[in-house]
């Protein structure tokens, strides 16, 4: 999984992360591995309950009460997040890691001017005077696409549209000059046209500031648009990881394939749509081996025993034992 070409730009490394909800017998995240480097957007795609958001929160050291790390390592910019104390974590958040949430309205304080919320974040992470913090906030507002930033500084969240609010949340996340931005479904609450503009903004930030982004989404279309690489999660496991175009065009895991065939697209009519039979497993259900096996048309008995994410090709990995079947299907077109 570790890629030599990005070793020097490496920002984040998650290895075999296991998360457990207190009192439950089985882990909710069961061996997730992930890398991110400066200058790239890494997507975690999955449905609700796949563990994608918990994984993201674990990276920020922001797990909800009752959820604990049961195993594995998380390293952000050479800091061990799992072992870090509250002091280290607090420094990490903001200064190294910024976070963007799904609901811009609840992520902002409704009674505080947006400029002050950004300035406050800048003050918390830098050695700035009040006027410097204000200048920084105005600069950030401009950076995230506010025309007339000095005037907008004094506005309240309710005076802004959903898209503009999300820009404010991004500005707050950037206030401490982080090198890694963690985005948790940042466009899910937004309209398609607004989503597009936010994605453009994030792409610009990666290019101009050289930051890395981990982008959690349930929407493969959004992931296709912004991510350089995608890790697909299902029931707490990363089932497949690879460069976006490769992964979406020639998936190497039956779940990715099934998901792609279940997405309605404009160029395919309903007869090309395939529902995935059955339902995702419940949280805390015991799942020996591949979690997707019970719903998988390619499954064989061995799929119910241990599985691991193994490298295939140069730059990809999959947890499917039968990935060669999918590889052969792709081969049909090229050989």
């Amino acid at each position: 999984m570790s890629r030599p070409d990005v070793a020097d730009r490496r920002l984040l490394s998650v290895r075999d992360l296991r998360l457990r909800v207190g009192g439950e017998a089985h882990d909710v995240v069961r061996g997730a591995s992930l890398d991110a480097a400066r200058g790239e957007v890494v997507g975690i795609a999955g449905e609700s309950g796949s563990g994608k958001s918990l994984t993201l929160r674990a990276i920020a050291g922001l797990l909800p009460t009752g959820v604990t790390v049961a195993g594995g390592d998380i390293e952000v910019d050479r800091v061990d997040v799992v072992k870090a104390g509250p002091q280290t974590l607090r420094k990490l958040r903001g200064a190294t890691v910024g976070m963007v949430f799904q609901e811009p309205m609840t992520a902002l304080n409704p009674t505080m001017r947006i400029g002050r919320q950004i300035a406050e974040a800048a003050l918390a992470h830098g050695d700035l005077s009040r006027s410097q913090a204000k200048a920084r906030a105005i600069e950030l507002l401009e950076r995230v696409g506010f025309p007339e930033p000095a005037r907008r500084y004094r506005q309240f969240p309710h005076q802004l549209s959903g898209g503009m609010r999300q820009r404010v949340v991004i500005a707050i996340a950037l206030a401490g000059n982080p090198s890694l931005l963690l985005c948790d479904e940042p466009t899910t609450a937004l309209d398609a046209t607004v989503t597009l503009r936010i994605l453009d903004l994030l792409t610009d930030l990666v290019r101009d500031l050289g930051i890395g982004i981990v982008f959690v989404t349930h929407d493969l279309g959004v992931a296709a648009r912004i991510c350089d690489r995608i890790a697909v999660m299902y029931a707490g496991q990363v089932v497949e990881e690879g460069p976006t175009a490769e992964l979406l065009r020639r998936p190497r895991h039956p779940y990715t394939l099934a998901l792609l065939r279940a997405v309605p697209t404009r160029d395919r009519d309903i007869d090309g749509l395939r529902a995935i039979p059955g339902n995702p497993p419940q949280r805390g259900e015991e799942l020996p081996g591949c979690a997707f096996a019970p719903r998988c048309e390619y499954a064989e008995p061995a799929c119910r025993s241990e599985i691991e994410l193994v490298p295939v090709d140069d730059d990809r990995s999959t947890s499917c034992r039968r990935h060669s079947v999918l590889a052969a299907m792709a081969g049909g077109h090229h050989d």
Binding site: L196, G221, A224, R250, D267, L326, A330
Partner: peptide, 26 residues
Amino acid sequence: RTLLAAATDLPPLDLDLDLDQDHRSP
């Protein structure tokens, strides 16, 4: 047109789905 441009589409699948499961024969 704006709405269509904003729609996030997926690249077409490049897999021959009619190949048999254990890829012996189409």
